[in-house]
Design a protein around this nucleic acid. Structure first.
Length: 783
DNA sequence: CCAAGGACTTAGTACATCGTGC
DNA sequence: GCACGATGTACTAAGTCCTTGG
């Protein structure tokens, strides 16, 4: 990306004229103070320092030396003894822990009969308890083990994540299973024998044939180029494969599809058995022992090979994600702890004992060269603690936000371009909840956040509406027409002014590190993302405050979701509407119409039973406005058809059953008889349409009809509400904000104060993740 | 100092499972 | 009791921010 107005790019003279132009923008303001200087480095420095000094006076920060000292103290005495997987055993343990081959019993964590790892027992001894004490407290500890209330413990050291760590390493995906010999890729219609490695890659694509990815040109070409590489590497094929267009993957696709169907069609018992086997295989990887406590591991599975599914228009989408070998995997584990055995005949890349990090294993992924990690599960103490800290940090922002807002409002008019940009960015991050927006590379999808916004991402509608239109994280579109602060409006116009052009950065004097450094002055640990957490939780609190404490649990639940939705919209959390959405909306709409039709028919009857009533209120007896003639015809056809289908289906089913039981089949005449009932119904509808008179069944009274009408009206109201809810929710993802942004204690507070079972608001996994919140917040808790 | 790399949070989607209305 | 939509979970990509090393 180009920095259009960086000092290097724009000569001083030009910059001056630029500055003059910029001044013009500030209509109606004192020219001199409003003029933005495009400063040289020297210019930049002096005022900046001054500004900082004043800012510091307003929002005092800790003396620099002091904060440095603190930082030093926080730094761990990093004990990152790194053991290369050579024959050298884990020295300290004194046991010979072979890294490869042989199956020494000590290579895997050993559990004794009460299922505790050795490390834990050692720990307990260290905990300096006499044996008697230990036995007496043993049971309690057993229980505590499951419910370690870290949030009630005092220690708060961030840097050391654990003292002992015991785990079983990672689970590798199963090896490739070659296709049966009759299933082959066809090239120009001719089946091709592929070496297994190449066949596997072709299979990745084949299995995805019907997905959107497989229709994407970039995906196709990335896949194909990698496929050819693999094919070449493993010896090629008798047929020269050169053109993607000539490849036919349908046989492969059908094969995998067939397999899927088979799997689905398995009996419950078969499925259960397979699941049990899988569970048994995975069991030992699922848990680890952190400081002697049992914790769940999150993603203990090494990611299987496949085709990279980059989001948005990712230049690398479709590339081959290679199989990860043990030789690429680094294990992190406690010192003096049995090292998990790599698969037979393999070695780990490295075994580390770094207690300043929380990962159990890591490897480098081949697409972007990024690190992948195996971490603990979301319900672990480690994750819980940092979650807790995140929200506490966001709450702390409460105490600074007024000052920060005052400052950036002032600085919106700062004469230093850099400061003005920073203030403007802070406004956008605070008010619109934009992300920081770091720089991105050429080989990534083109997405932006605040600092990386470009010329083409904003448009202006006087007097003060800005249209934001850009792709954010995950290539999710951010489109908002917002009325914003007049000065921010002016500033954004200024940042977009010529000579800036399409492709140029709006904030050419600002990047996330610069912004975050500034934020640290207000509050230690304050960064751009804290604003998102703060504003999300603050919004939730405000929304919940508005909810009246009355009505049914369901009503309160709906109100909670509405509050949740406000937050999700603020954070622009979206989901793609499912393919079935439109269809299902149509269905509900039809359902409402059908109920309305039935209600109208009841009214018709009532009018006949009591003509006086009809006379006194003819309006009431009119059909609903949507029920025009053609709609009614359509609905009737629909109802009749559905009934017919039902009868046929039921008939067929009964016969199937009879056939299975070796009994006599029902005669066709039975079907005809049954169908008669539907035909009578149809005739009744038709007659009713023709004559405008309904058939009155005996025993019908006005009272009964009225009761039925009321019931239908209620159903119409409910279904309409349901439909609206569905529409409103169709593109909004509530879960992301629930999991990451809304302080869970708010939800707990709501549950307790409004007597809504927490189970209704948090799923089981969420309850486990937010256990700390559930146990620590009460009905009066506030963010 | 700054670019690259490392560690961790945040994100939507694909798929599994649940539960509910017919 | 079953089909289907809703809900929940697993997965892994894509961010942020900090640390590291040249």
């Amino acid at each position: 990306m180009t920095n259009a107005l960086s000092d290097e790019d724009v000569p001083l003279s030009q910059r001056k004229s630029l500055a003059a132009n910029k001044g013009v923008v500030d209509t109606g303001k004192k020219r001199k103070s409003a003029t933005v200087k495009s400063e040289t480095h020297d210019d930049d420095h002096v005022p900046l320092k001054k500004k900082r000094a004043t800012a510091a006076a307003v929002a005092p920060t800790k003396a620099k030396s002091k904060s440095k000292e603190i930082k030093k103290e926080e730094k761990p005495a990093k004990s990152t003894a790194s053991v290369k997987p050579s024959p050298s055993p884990s020295k300290a343990s004194g046991k010979s822990t072979k890294m490869n081959g042989g199956s020494k019993p000590t290579s895997e964590p050993e559990y004794d009969s009460d299922d505790k790892p050795l490390a834990k027992r050692k720990m307990k001894k260290i905990d300096s308890k006499t044996d008697a004490e230990e036995t007496s407290t043993q049971e309690k500890e057993e229980e505590e083990e499951e419910f370690y209330k870290w949030w009630e413990a005092e220690s708060n050291d961030n840097s050391v994540k654990w003292t002992t760590l015991v785990h079983n390493g990672v689970l590798f995906p199963p090896p490739y299973e070659p296709l049966p010999s009759h299933v082959k890729l066809k090239y120009n219609g001719v089946p091709v024998a592929l070496p297994p490695d190449a066949e596997e890659v072709a299979g990745f694509f084949g299995a995805m044939l019907e997905t959107e990815h497989a229709k994407n040109k970039v995906f196709q070409s990335n896949f194909f180029s990698d496929f050819k590489d693999v094919l070449k590497q493993c010896g090629g094929s008798h047929l020269k494969i050169e053109k993607f267009e000539h490849c036919d993957f349908t046989d492969i696709f059908n094969y995998y599809e067939e397999k899927r169907i088979q799997k689905k069609a398995m009996t419950a018992a078969e499925k259960k058995k397979i699941k049990e086997e899988k569970d048994k295989l995975e069991e030992k990887y699922k848990v680890c022992y952190l400081d002697g406590r049992k914790e769940l591991v999150g993603n203990f599975r090494i990611e299987p090979p496949g085709l990279f599914r980059g989001r948005g228009s990712h230049p690398k989408t479709g590339k081959l994600k290679e199989r990860v070998m043990p030789e690429q995997v680094t294990i992190n584990i406690g010192l003096n702890t049995p090292i998990p055995q790599p698969p037979d005949g393999h070695e780990w890349a490295e075994v580390k004992h770094d207690n300043t990090v929380s990962w159990l294993a890591t490897w480098k992924e081949n697409i972007n060269g990024a690190q992948k990690y195996v971490f603990l599960a979301a319900n672990s103490s480690l994750k819980g603690m940092s979650d807790f800290k995140k929200f506490e940090k966001a709450r702390e922002l409460k105490n600074h936000i007024t000052g920060i807002r005052n400052d950036y409002t002032k600085e919106l008019k700062d004469e230093l371009m850099a400061n003005r940009q920073r203030a403007t960015a802070m406004y956008l991050i605070d008010v619109l909840a934009l992300r920081a927006g770091g720089e991105k590379g050429e080989d990534e999808a083109d997405t932006v956040g605040c600092c990386s916004l470009r010329y083409e991402h904003v448009a202006f509608k006087p007097p003060n509406t800005v249209v934001f239109d850009f792709l954010g994280k995950d290539s999710i579109r951010y489109y908002q027409e917002v009325k914003i602060d007049q000065q921010v409006y002016k500033n954004l116009k200024l940042f977009k002014k010529a000579p800036k052009k399409f492709g140029d950065q709006l904030f050419d004097r600002l990047d996330p590190p610069t912004l975050n450094r500034h934020l640290q002055n207000y509050m230690p640990g304050l960064t751009a993302k804290v604003f998102r957490t703060y504003n999300a939780s603050k919004t939730m609190q405000d929304q919940l405050d508005k909810i009246e404490n009355k009505g049914t649990v369901n009503e309160k639940y709906v109100a909670y979701n509405a509050a949740n939705r406000t937050v999700a919209i603020l954070c622009n959390h979206q989901r793609t509407v499912s393919k079935a959405h439109e269809q299902s909306v149509g269905k509900i709409e039809d359902k409402i119409l059908e109920i309305k039709l039935q209600r109208y028919r009841l009214k018709l009857m009532m009018g006949q039973v009591d003509p006086e009533m009809k006379k006194s209120d003819p309006e009431y007896f009119q059909p609903d406005t949507e029920l025009d003639d053609s709609t009614i015809e359509r609905l009737i056809d629909q109802i009749v058809q559905r009934e017919k289908d039902k009868v046929t289906k039921k008939f067929q089913k009964e016969n199937e059953k009879r056939a299975a039981e070796n009994g006599e089949l029902l005669p066709e005449s039975e079907l005809t008889t049954r169908m008669k009932v539907v035909e009578e119904l149809e005739a009744e509808y038709k007659k009713e349409r023709k004559t405008g008179k309904a058939e009155i069944r005996n025993g019908m009274t006005v009272e009964k009809l009225q009761a039925q009408i009321e019931k239908l009206t209620e159903r119409i109201v409910n279904t309409t509400l349901q439909l609206k809810d569905k529409e409103d929710n169709s593109t909004v993802a509530l879960t992301t904000s629930k999991i990451n942004y809304i302080d869970p204690r708010l939800t707990v507070m709501f549950a307790k104060k409004y007597n809504v079972p927490i189970e209704k608001l948090f799923s089981k996994t969420l309850r486990e993740k937010f256990k700390w919140a559930i146990e620590s917040a009460d009905a009066n808790w506030r963010f």
